[in-house]
């Protein structure tokens, strides 16, 4: 069923971050639908459900209870059904280790959570407007971390 909105999912255990995230999309006035999950297990339960609609973009926090972002990423990439989802890592840290690991595991882009709401809005609008097909073809370690 084709719809005219962009389906976005955020998996993050931090309520403040969820608030910023949803607020940003509210203000961005892009036709989006945002679903949020509080941990990796909730997310995977949703994605594994045949009834669920797969998101266009999945924002994945790395540090989550029950199931970490890395574990979720591995499961998603291993599943045929979910492999098409564009995955944006959405994390406080931008350590070399995390960036390297998620890149190797097949994430599409890496976003470091900014400390400024305007910047957040800009980053998010950038991400949802990416042509994933095109982006993925030219993806390398240098443009993996999104910077403005």
């Amino acid at each position: 069923m084709q719809t005219d909105y962009i389906h976005i999912i955020l998996a993050d255990d931090d309520e403040d971050d969820i608030l910023f995230f949803t607020d940003a999309f509210d203000e961005l006035k892009i036709n989006t639908k945002v679903n949020t999950f509080k941990d990796g297990e909730e997310l995977m339960d949703y994605l594994n459900d045949d009834q669920s609609r797969m998101p266009n973009v999945l924002f994945l926090d790395l540090n989550m209870p029950k199931k970490t972002g890395i574990e979720c990423l591995k499961e998603i990439k291993a599943s045929h059904k979910m492999s098409e989802i564009a995955i944006a890592i959405y994390s406080t840290s931008a350590s070399e280790e995390d960036i390297e690991k998620t890149f190797v595991l097949g994430a599409n882009i890496y976003i470091k959570k900014p400390g400024d709401f305007k910047k957040l809005k800009k980053l998010l609008s950038e991400v949802v407007s990416i042509n994933w097909q095109y982006h993925t073809n030219g993806l390398n370690k240098d443009n993996f971390l999104l910077s403005l």
């Binding site: 403040d16 971050d17 910023f20 607020d23 406080t92 959570k113 900014p114 400390g115 400024d116 709401f117 305007k118 957040l120």
Partner: peptide, 9 residues
């Protein structure tokens, strides 16, 4: 980061 974001809000 949150403090800064809230300040910007």
């Amino acid at each position: 980061r949150k403090i800064q974001t809230f300040i910007s809000r």
